[in-house]
Simulated assay, not measured.
Amino acid sequence: MNTRHSNRVPPEIQAEIDALAALPENQIDTDDIPEVRDWSSAKRGLFYRPVKQQITLRLDADLVDWFKNHHSQDEGYQTSINRALREYVVQHQT
């Protein structure tokens, strides 16, 4: 992990964040923010990239073959496997 950059939020900024988070929905003024209704052209992961960890993982050959032959044109088979694993984790969180 890169420890050169601190992710700590200064106390005065954290206090402001906490105060805003405590506001009820009806007290938040969003008139200056246009509501986006059509997300069809949105690109996932454009600004946020999760930290990846390289590992060696043994999978059944038929699973690897299936992912290699059935991934979408926009993502590779490893990304498809990662997405499938993430969906599994989300569904099984307690």
Results as ranks from 00 to 15, higher is better:
P11K: 13
R83W: 01
Q93D: 02
R8D: 14
M1Q: 09
V64M: 06
H71L: 02
R4K: 13
A21H: 08
P24K: 11
P10C: 13
A21M: 13
D38Y: 06
P50A: 07
L85M: 11
R44C: 04
P24N: 09
D32T: 10
R83T: 09
L46H: 08
A42P: 01
D74R: 14
L57N: 04
N26V: 05
A42N: 08
Y48K: 11
N26Q: 11
L20F: 14
I28W: 05
Q14F: 04
P50M: 05
E35C: 07
N26H: 14
R86C: 03
F67N: 02
W39Q: 07
N69V: 00
I55M: 09
N7P: 02
L85Y: 00
T79A: 15
E87T: 03
E75I: 12
K68S: 00
D38A: 04
I33R: 12
M1I: 09
I81R: 02
Q93G: 00
P24S: 08
L57E: 05
Q53P: 00
R86T: 10
P11C: 00
L85I: 15
Q93W: 03
S80H: 05
P11D: 15
A42D: 10
V36T: 15
Q91E: 11
L63M: 13
E12A: 12
D18S: 13
S41G: 03
H92I: 03
P50S: 06
I17T: 02
H92W: 01
D32S: 13
V36E: 15
E35D: 10
P50R: 12
V89D: 00
K52I: 04
P34H: 09
R44L: 08
N82D: 04
A42I: 04
H70R: 09
T94C: 00
I81F: 07
N82I: 10
F47A: 10
R58N: 08
R83K: 14
D74Y: 08
T56L: 06
V9I: 15
L63H: 12
L46C: 06
G76P: 02
D32Y: 07
D74A: 14
V90G: 00
P10G: 09
Y48H: 13
Y88T: 04
S40R: 15
P34M: 10
A19S: 10
R86Y: 04
N69M: 03
H71G: 05
F67D: 02
F67A: 15
N69R: 15
M1A: 13
K68R: 15
R4N: 15
Q91G: 02
L23P: 05
S6C: 14
R58G: 03
L23V: 03
R49G: 03
S41N: 13
H71Y: 01
E75N: 11
S41E: 14
H70S: 12
S72A: 15
D31M: 07
H5W: 05
G76F: 02
L63T: 11
V51F: 04
